[in-house]
């Protein structure tokens, strides 16, 4: 098991201006450490506002953390030189959620891919390389001469993936790559991702709010809530024997095709509220049916060996 990327004690907050003098600090990610092993698919689940996308961008070094560091293949990016950082970032690529925004609407697919090759200072024949990559992502070469609006959502996502793998990355952050797609197309893309990972020896950080999708592609998963990782473990273990009450709630909330009895979800009320991340205790405290006094006063640490959980009663 070789570690590929590691985030250490990452924190990131944003200032939101309310008025000229008043502004609030929203802690998107707070003291999160995450290590991603070469060739694994790490699934990151969480609801909106959990900070999962911000964590993804921090891992890519697309956003600079307020504190903490990113270590890519042993290189601490916060201490590295400009050129080293650029080379490292090229090895870490990204595919975003919205296929309509991830491609420049004014550029033909060929130009989008050409830009990627130019950025990587690719020496060989551009056309040849594009052809192989287009085949890899399951598109015909004819698509090269088209504009994004002439392609369907699934095809645009394939192009975004092609642009990412042109840089010959080792690590790809997939930020909700299938959330904007129809189920039948989603399945195509998921299978393509699995196939590419084998073929090109890739490592993924797969971010999604959809638990069934994450459980389908991931080896390990992490569960985020209001800027914190609450549970990390092997995919099967986390989904079959969740330890954290929030993970239990999430899993029991997923509508399934089997009409299983879901006592937990049906007896739950309450929502994640802004400001809940600033409480001194466990941030799930208000919604947790098992909460005791200690949960209110003391924040639990992420503990455990392989299956880690941040809960006083796990």
């Amino acid at each position: 098991m070789i570690e590929l990327v590691r985030g250490e004690n990452l924190s990131k907050s944003y200032n939101i201006k309310l008025s000229l003098t008043k502004s609030i600090k929203v802690k998107a990610v707070e003291d999160v450490s995450l290590s991603i092993i070469k060739n694994e698919v790490f699934g990151l689940v969480g609801e909106s506002g959990s900070g999962k996308s911000t964590l993804g961008r921090l891992m890519l070094y697309m956003e600079r953390p307020d504190s903490g560091k990113i270590i890519f293949k042993g290189l601490d990016l916060s201490k590295a030189k400009g050129e080293e950082v650029r080379t490292a970032r090229r090895k870490m690529q990204v595919v975003f959620q919205n296929p309509d925004l991830s491609l420049d609407p004014r550029m033909r697919i060929y130009d989008t891919l050409k830009e990627a090759l130019e950025c990587c200072k690719y020496k060989g024949d551009f056309k040849e390389r594009m052809k192989t990559v287009m085949e890899d992502v399951g598109l015909s070469v004819d698509a090269l001469s088209m504009f994004p609006h002439q392609l369907s959502g699934g095809m645009k996502q394939r192009v975004a993936l092609a642009r990412a793998i042109l840089a010959e990355p080792e690590f790809i952050v997939l930020d909700e790559p299938t959330s904007a797609l129809d189920v039948s197309v989603q399945a195509q893309i998921l299978n393509l991702l699995i196939e590419l990972r084998k073929k090109l020896n890739l490592t993924y950080l797969f971010i999604s709010h959809n638990l069934s999708v994450v459980s389908y592609v991931s080896d390990r998963v992490g569960v985020m809530y209001l800027g914190k990782l609450l549970e990390i473990g092997e995919c099967d273990e986390v989904f079959n024997e969740p330890l954290h009450p929030y993970t239990k709630l999430l899993i029991s909330s997923v509508p399934t095709l089997y009409m299983a009895k879901k006592f937990f979800a049906q007896n739950h009320s309450g929502v994640a509220e802004n400001g809940d991340e600033n409480v001194s205790g466990c941030r799930f405290f208000k919604r947790c049916p098992y909460a005791k006094d200690i949960c209110k006063s003391k924040e639990p640490e992420l503990k455990g060996d392989k299956h880690m959980v941040a809960c006083h009663f796990a």
Partner: peptide, 13 residues
Amino acid sequence: CIPRGLKGLLKPL
């Protein structure tokens, strides 16, 4: 098409 647990590859349309 819907991923349901770990039951082999999906059969996309």
